[in-house]
């Protein structure tokens, strides 16, 4: 991730299962501006597949998606 890309919003999705992480991400992305970035953490392993699928379907950019110490962290940039 670029160092100059500042996070407009953070989202805690830990402890939540499908479909809530995707639903909350969708709502949160609607609350930021185009070109702005959201960072979220989750514990449901399903996000590894579902967040890329959501980004592909909605046309938003998945900047990163990593797992560290059982926590999934992803960064999404709103495109439209």
């Amino acid at each position: 991730m670029d160092k100059d890309m500042s996070i407009a919003k953070t989202l805690n999705l830990e402890g939540l299962l499908c479909p809530i992480p995707v639903v909350k991400l969708s709502n949160a992305v609607k609350g930021i501006g185009v070109g702005e970035v959201i960072e979220a953490t989750a514990t449901d392993p399903g996000v590894m597949m579902d967040i890329p699928a959501w980004c592909k379907s909605t046309g938003n950019d998945l900047i990163s998606l990593d797992k560290e110490d059982g926590i999934f962290r992803f960064v999404v940039c709103r495109v439209n």
Binding site: C18, P19, V22, V23, L25, S26, N27, W54, S57, T58
Partner: peptide, 11 residues
Amino acid sequence: FILASTAAAMD
């Protein structure tokens, strides 16, 4: 309800 809420979240 899961499919519908997810689909809505996918516009």
